[in-house]
Computed example of a mutant assay.
Amino acid sequence: MTLEDLVRLRRARDVMDRDYAQPLNVPALASVALMSPGHFSRSFRAAYGETPYSYLMTRRVERAKALLRRGDMSVTDVCFAVGCTSLGSFSTRFTELVGESPSVYRARRHDAGAAIPACVAKIFTRPVRNGGAETGVAS
């Protein structure tokens, strides 16, 4: 993979990070990266270790966790606020990444991490597959 390809993939990843609540799909993201959809998907997975869809859903779940911790929105409202169109798919992916359903996550107390700066908390609360965190600490 060339440096130019990595720059293009980063551009598409930045779009997912910034516009996670928008209806994004592989063809749209591939056009941002100036690649065909198939080449984009393969290259993205090779560069980042997950599919574009998986990366986007992780961003959406990460944002959903923040909204659910506030406690002033229903799970359904959070689902749509982060760009998901199916409550069932959102709940399934949330549970897969976080280890508990959005309703259970919303209902439990979250004040233990209130004194932790957001930039540090983000590292430990980032949802990843199998319920672990990138740092090896369970979220």
Rank of each mutant, 00 (worst) to 15 (best):
T2A: 09
L3I: 11
L3F: 03
E4V: 12
D5F: 04
L6F: 07
L6H: 08
L6Q: 13
L6M: 10
V7S: 08
V7E: 14
V7A: 14
R8Q: 12
L9N: 07
R10H: 09
R11I: 07
D14T: 11
V15D: 02
M16D: 09
M16Y: 01
M16A: 03
D17T: 10
Y20N: 08
Q22K: 13
Q22I: 08
Q22C: 13
V26I: 13
P27F: 02
A28G: 07
L29P: 00
L29A: 03
L29R: 00
A30R: 01
S31Q: 13
S31C: 04
V32E: 03
V32W: 01
A33P: 09
S36I: 01
P37L: 12
P37T: 09
H39V: 14
H39C: 09
R42L: 15
F44S: 02
F44N: 02
R45I: 03
R45A: 04
A46M: 11
A47C: 05
Y48T: 07
Y48D: 04
Y48W: 06
G49N: 08
G49S: 02
E50S: 05
P52L: 00
P52I: 01
S54E: 11
Y55L: 02
M57V: 05
T58V: 09
R60D: 01
R60Y: 01
R60E: 00
V61E: 01
V61M: 01
R63L: 04
A64G: 03
K65I: 05
A66T: 10
R69Q: 04
R69F: 01
R70A: 15
G71V: 06
G71D: 02
S74G: 15
V75F: 04
T76C: 06
T76I: 13
D77F: 03
D77H: 04
C79N: 01
C79V: 01
V82Q: 02
C84E: 11
C84H: 08
S86G: 10
G88E: 11
S89E: 11
F90L: 05
T92I: 11
T92C: 11
T92R: 13
T92N: 13
R93L: 06
F94S: 01
T95C: 12
T95G: 13
E96A: 15
L97C: 11
V98L: 09
G99C: 12
G99P: 02
E100C: 13
E100A: 10
S103W: 01
S103K: 04
V104F: 05
A107D: 15
H110P: 03
H110W: 02
D111E: 15
D111S: 15
G113Q: 04
G113N: 09
A115Q: 14
A115W: 08
I116G: 05
P117G: 09
P117C: 13
C119R: 07
F124W: 08
F124N: 10
T125N: 11
R126E: 12
R126G: 09
P127F: 02
R129S: 15
R129K: 13
R129H: 10
N130A: 15
N130P: 02
G132K: 08
G132Y: 07
G132S: 13
A133Q: 07
T135C: 10
T135K: 04
G136R: 01
V137Y: 03
V137M: 04
V137P: 00
A138S: 11
S139W: 07
S139C: 11
